[in-house]
């Protein structure tokens, strides 16, 4: 029992939960309005896309991959839905399903190239990020509406999916995030598919010798992350009421930050959904709380960047035996002196 508690405390997720709690306490002190449930829960509207996408980009990183194209897929999905609905007269819900399909296809295309040609994932998804944001421009050119304005005027029912709140407090987005976290958790930690993802990430060659179709597994993770990006695109379009090509432009870096801060190794094989979910909340709440405390929104990148570097540096230093023993040695020596 005691050992279990010790194990829990030394888990990274526990540290993240503490940080989250600390943030809420500190920001609550600075601005009591922050602690109003409606405000606190409502904050997720600002960063739900980061939360959702990072859940599934975690899958990609665990296979040892990298995904910097998700942001572009958000924009591509958004504008596709807009153009389909506005210019081609497609029912909005059908357009959403087609949007999901576009996201899945985009992810699968990059995933296919990564899995079957062994080009570095970073390079392929870099190409993907250009390609899909470019395609978003192409799609927007099909519309009569000028690109910079974006497409708006969507039906009420579509806009309503992101406006509702349970008891007037908890927004639908929050529920979506919780539901998707459970889904991702189940997929990654409780299914045979999830186990294969881990095995591929730890040692892909050995996984192949075990008869696992590593290529299919690797490819599928990119497809999943593409779909999650599409879903984020739908939610953002509904929330903002406008379909635009550049909706996901600034998402790439926060997504990777959330996944890595959550404890996922960029070398693959390690990571948890709980960690990613908590880390995305930590980042989101940090930004929200700071801006509520009167910090200029343009400055918010600074603490997020610092948080990322410091947390990973601590993790990396503490796993580096030589450095640790050096510090211990130093400590011992100074201790002996006194």
């Amino acid at each position: 029992m005691k050992r279990n508690i010790k194990k829990l405390i030394f888990r990274w997720e526990f540290a993240l939960a503490l940080i989250l709690l600390l943030e809420i306490i500190v920001f609550g002190r600075l601005n009591p309005r922050f602690l109003k449930p409606r405000v606190l829960f409502g904050s997720i509207n600002d960063f739900v896309s980061i939360c959702i996408i990072s859940l599934f980009v975690t899958f990609v990183l665990i296979t040892g991959g990298m995904d910097i194209q998700a942001g572009s897929i958000v924009g591509l999905t958004s504008i596709s839905i807009g153009v389909l609905w506005n210019d081609f007269g497609v029912n909005i819900w059908v357009a959403c399903i087609l949007g999901l399909l576009i996201g899945a296809l985009s992810g699968a295309f990059s995933g296919f190239l990564i899995a079957f040609t062994d080009v570095q994932p970073m390079v392929v998804t870099l190409g993907g990020s250009f390609l899909y944001s470019g395609l978003a421009m192409v799609v927007s050119n099909l519309s009569e509406v000028e690109a910079y304005k974006g497409i708006s005027g969507f039906p009420q029912a579509f806009l309503a999916i992101t406006k509702g709140r349970i008891n007037g407090i908890i927004p639908f987005q929050f529920l979506m995030f919780v539901a998707l976290s459970f889904l991702a958790y189940f997929l990654l930690h409780r299914t045979k598919y999830g186990r294969k993802i881990f095995l591929c990430g730890v040692n892909r060659k050995a996984a192949e010798y075990c008869g696992i179709h590593t290529r299919k597994v690797v490819m599928s993770t990119y497809m999943l992350s593409g779909m999650s990006a599409a879903l984020a695109g739908i939610i953002l379009t509904s929330y903002l009421g406008t379909a635009k090509t550049d909706l996901g432009k600034e998402l790439t870096m926060p997504i990777i930050t959330a996944v890595v801060l959550g404890g996922t190794s960029n070398l693959g094989g390690k990571g948890t959904i709980l960690g990613t979910a908590l880390a995305s909340l930590v980042i989101g709440i940090l930004r929200f709380g700071l801006s509520m405390s009167g910090v200029n929104t343009q400055y918010l990148d600074i603490p997020v960047g610092a948080l990322l570097i410091v947390s990973v540096a601590i993790r990396s230093v503490s796993s580096n035996d030589r450095l640790v023993s050096f510090i211990k040695h130093r400590f011992k020596r100074s201790y002996q002196k006194t």
Binding site: R190, K192, A207, G269
Partner: peptide
């Protein structure tokens, strides 16, 4: 080619027979 270094003994043992461990859930 043989082992998953940072995985557990259990995960290593069943790596070739993951498909036989349940339907969808592990």
């Amino acid at each position: 080619n043989g082992m998953f270094r940072i995985s557990s003994v259990a995960e290593n043992t069943t790596a070739s027979s993951v498909d036989s461990l349940g339907h969808i859930a592990l």
